[in-house]
Computed example of a mutant assay.
Amino acid sequence: MVNINSYRVIDAHIHLDLYDYEEQERIIESLEESSVEGLVSVSFHLESCMKNFEISKRNPRIRSAFGFHPEQSLVSEAELDKLISFIRRNNRDMVAIGEVGLPYYTRMENPSLLIEPYIECLKSFIQLSSELRKPIVLHSVYDDAPVVCDLLERESVERAHFHWFKGDAKTIQRMQANGYYISVTPDLLYEKEIQKLVNSYPLSQMMVETDGPWRFEGPFTGKMTHPVFIHKVVEKISTIKRTPLREVYEQLYINTENFFKCTW
Results as ranks from 00 to 15, higher is better:
residue 82 K to A: 14
residue 183 S to D: 09
residue 224 M to G: 08
residue 13 H to E: 06
residue 84 I to F: 10
residue 14 I to R: 00
residue 105 Y to M: 12
residue 109 E to G: 09
residue 84 I to S: 09
residue 212 G to E: 10
residue 86 F to K: 06
residue 130 S to C: 09
residue 128 L to S: 00
residue 252 L to D: 02
residue 178 N to L: 15
residue 16 L to T: 02
residue 226 H to I: 02
residue 130 S to T: 06
residue 125 F to Q: 02
residue 81 D to L: 11
residue 206 M to L: 14
residue 150 D to C: 07
residue 157 V to W: 01
residue 97 I to R: 05
residue 236 K to C: 09
residue 35 S to N: 14
residue 44 F to T: 15
residue 110 N to H: 12
residue 164 W to D: 04
residue 239 T to M: 13
residue 242 R to S: 15
residue 169 A to Q: 14
residue 86 F to S: 08
residue 221 T to C: 13
residue 185 T to W: 01
residue 138 L to M: 10
residue 131 E to C: 05
residue 118 Y to F: 14
residue 83 L to T: 03
residue 48 S to P: 08
residue 247 E to H: 06
residue 58 R to L: 14
residue 74 L to P: 05
residue 201 Y to W: 04
residue 104 Y to I: 02
residue 149 C to P: 00
residue 56 S to N: 08
residue 154 R to N: 09
residue 175 M to T: 01
residue 235 E to R: 09
residue 253 Y to T: 00
residue 250 E to V: 03
residue 6 S to Y: 09
residue 76 S to Y: 08
residue 172 I to C: 07
residue 238 S to P: 07
residue 28 I to A: 11
residue 184 V to I: 15
residue 16 L to P: 02
residue 124 S to H: 05
residue 147 V to R: 12
residue 261 K to F: 03
residue 226 H to R: 07
residue 123 K to H: 10
residue 213 P to H: 08
residue 222 G to E: 11
residue 10 I to G: 04
residue 240 I to S: 11
residue 97 I to P: 07
residue 252 L to K: 01
residue 254 I to P: 00
residue 57 K to H: 06
residue 19 Y to A: 05
residue 24 Q to D: 07
residue 88 R to A: 07
residue 76 S to H: 09
residue 61 R to D: 05
residue 189 L to N: 03
residue 243 T to S: 13
residue 125 F to H: 02
residue 172 I to E: 09
residue 53 F to D: 12
residue 183 S to Q: 03
residue 132 L to N: 04
residue 145 A to T: 15
residue 52 N to P: 06
residue 197 L to R: 00
residue 153 E to L: 10
residue 262 C to A: 11
residue 131 E to Q: 13
residue 255 N to G: 10
residue 198 V to T: 03
residue 63 R to F: 09
residue 133 R to V: 02
residue 256 T to G: 06
residue 160 A to P: 01
residue 17 D to M: 05
residue 223 K to E: 13
residue 26 R to E: 14
residue 53 F to E: 14
residue 106 T to E: 12
residue 223 K to P: 11
residue 248 V to T: 06
residue 164 W to T: 02
residue 102 L to V: 00
residue 225 T to R: 06
residue 253 Y to E: 04
residue 218 G to M: 15
residue 114 L to A: 13
residue 15 H to G: 11
residue 172 I to S: 04
